[in-house]
């Protein structure tokens, strides 16, 4: 199979997110970036498909801090090609990003067994816009919130998750775009030694594309932290006392 995984960098929330002085953007001083979680699964899904059905995996990313480490790690895990598009992801916006990626993917005719696997959503794209926009731009079928992919006879059966734990199977013709929510297995571990070896031996390809004409589709007016509601009550005292008070509270609200 011809598998494309689209990797997106998102802010690492291990560090506290602070609003910058402009009141709109994030304070970059301690901001670190990591690979978006659903994208990790998308990569794992692609690697599993490759292991089971053959083919090649290409990982594609826009430029962002720490993105090279992520691309090398993907290669160490088993991706065959890593492509970086030197257009900054920051400030680009989901729709414009989808357009750039579509330019890259659509620059040549698709092989019939192509699957494009973006993450179904990201912490800064909870709407999950990227994947459908991309599918629309490429004029390919699309299924989102996918948690299982099984190819057979030039088509794929995908499992989509619905609210309440319901699942549905879809039969999709190829090529297609699948927004991946999770893979059949958790993302694999790759030893650091292997990543370091790959960094010495492998290359990241750079594909120059014209920047999109209209970068952002949304204007941010204000970014802020939610204010504390102040409704929490701190129970104090020895563990036994706290336990007693807690029982009272729970009883009062008829939980127990």
């Amino acid at each position: 199979m011809n598998l494309y995984v689209l990797l997106k960098m998102v802010p690492d929330t291990v560090e506290e997110l602070n609003v910058a002085a402009d009141g709109k953007s994030l304070d970059a001083e301690f901001l670190r970036f990591k690979l978006s979680d659903p994208d990790e699964y998308a990569l794992e899904q692609a690697l599993l498909l490759k292991e089971q059905h053959g083919g090649s995996v290409t990982v594609v990313a826009l430029d962002a801090p720490e993105v090279d480490d992520v691309l090398f790690t993907a290669l160490a895990k088993g991706a065959d090609r890593a492509v970086k598009i030197p257009i900054a992801q920051a400030g680009l916006g989901t729709v414009a990003a989808a357009r750039v990626l579509a330019d890259f993917l659509g620059s040549a005719p698709f092989a019939p067994d192509t699957l494009v696997l973006p993450g179904s959503q990201a912490i800064d794209d909870l709407e999950g816009e990227l994947a459908p926009f991309l599918a629309a731009a490429l004029k390919l079928p699309y299924v989102g919130v996918v948690c299982g992919v099984t190819p057979a006879n030039g088509r794929v059966t995908v499992i989509k998750e619905f609210a309440g734990g319901l699942r549905a199977e879809f039969d999709v013709t190829l090529p297609a775009v699948l927004g991946i929510q999770s893979a059949e297995k958790p993302p694999r571990y790759v030893p650091v030694a292997k990543v370091r070896a790959v960094m010495k031996s492998a290359q990241i390809e750079t594909v120059d594309l014209p920047p999109p004409a209209r970068p952002g589709q949304l204007e941010i007016e204000r970014t802020y932290k939610p204010e504390a509601a102040g409704r929490a009550e701190m129970l104090e005292g020895s563990p036994d006392e706290v336990a007693d008070k807690l029982v009272d509270v729970l009883a009062k609200i008829s939980v127990i």
């Binding site: 291990v14 990591k34 297995k185 958790p186 694999r188 571990y189 030893p191 650091v192 030694a193 292997k194």
Partner: peptide, 25 residues
């Protein structure tokens, strides 16, 4: 053990997380 780690695609999640954390943080 290192070869076990290189060869196995699945290792206990808690453990994998710790290794990744050690590397990243």
């Amino acid at each position: 053990k290192e070869q076990v780690l290189v060869t196995r695609t699945e290792i206990p999640a808690e453990f994998q997380k710790s290794l990744e954390n050690m590397h990243r943080y």
